[in-house]
């Protein structure tokens, strides 16, 4: 039992990201309002960002900006254990940008739909489509 609890505690970052991701996924599938779906999509993407960033953390390490003096003579010995993993941060910068871009396109589409049908509720739009 204590084993299980220690596992659960040691990996709490994964549980948080999974919960968030499932909330987003559920909103995307089950919600009727198109903008709520977009919100769900954003939560979904943010959960993945959280996952990646949590991979980068290292116990006892600091942000990956090297301490450095000025001038060519100053050299510090750099130990890898002192700095957290920079790669997930780089990747997630990309993913954040992609998320923003997707959000922009999704909102543009939602505006087009609103102009056409005057509503953002999916079932109302579908009734209008069927009537035509």
């Amino acid at each position: 039992m204590t084993d299980l609890i220690s596992t659960v505690v040691a990996k709490y970052n994964y549980w948080i990201y999974i919960t968030l991701m499932m909330i987003g996924l559920y909103a995307m599938i089950a919600k009727n309002n198109l903008v709520k779906k977009i919100v769900g999509m954003n939560i979904f993407q943010t959960a993945i960002i959280l996952f990646y960033v949590s991979i980068g953390v290292k116990k006892g390490a600091t942000i990956p900006i090297l301490e450095h003096g000025h001038g060519p003579d100053v050299h510090h010995v750099v130990h890898a254990v002192d700095y957290i993993n920079p790669l997930p941060h780089v990747l997630m910068l990309t993913a954040i940008v992609v998320g923003v871009a997707t959000l922009g396109v999704a909102l543009a589409l939602a505006i087009r739909i609103y102009n056409n049908y005057n509503t953002l509720e999916e079932n109302e739009i579908l009734t209008q489509v069927r009537e035509k």
């Binding site: 991979i55 953390v57 993993n85 920079p86 790669l87």
Partner: peptide, 20 residues
């Protein structure tokens, strides 16, 4: 690997190269 584990593959394979 557990959270913030310094020995996880992600922290020991490529990142030391980048940091150093």
């Amino acid at each position: 690997p557990a959270w913030s584990d310094p020995a996880s593959p992600a922290s020991t394979y490529l990142s030391p190269y980048f940091i150093e």
